[in-house]
Amino acid sequence: MLTLEEKQEIERAIHQVPLRKAACIEALKVVQEHRRWVSDESLKDVAAFMDMSPAELDSVATFYNLIFRRPVGRHIILVCDSISCWVMGYEKIQAHLSQKLNIGFGETTLDGRYTMLPNPCLGTCDHAPAFMIDHDLYRDVTTDQLDAILEKYT
């Protein structure tokens, strides 16, 4: 069941476009904002609300990298794995994060705190290597900074 708040937010998005269906990505974003991920049940609820079949909505949901169709942790680490960050050694950063958190790409820590994902170029190539945690961007990262950064998120 979508909450009243979710429905209102989705309605606002629908108002901005000439076709109800056109707001379906916004609708998925709303649900993800509230629940961190889009479960099968949420997907069906959103589809019904948007006058779409679940299959049609899922074809959209699973197309985009940042709509999560599986549970994720409280915080999302997006490690840039594109060319400038690769040249500047993102693999060392990722290895350190993996060791520290005991997870690889696509995995979530046992305490549900972090999910780590690879992400295409974050557009800050003059400050490579870079990664994001939730809305925060970290640039020119060195391995000795990582412990302090990770402690900021609970």
Partner: peptide, 8 residues
């Protein structure tokens, strides 16, 4: 939608 790798 600046996503071309290496572009900032």
């Amino acid at each position: 939608d600046e996503m071309e790798p290496g572009t900032f």
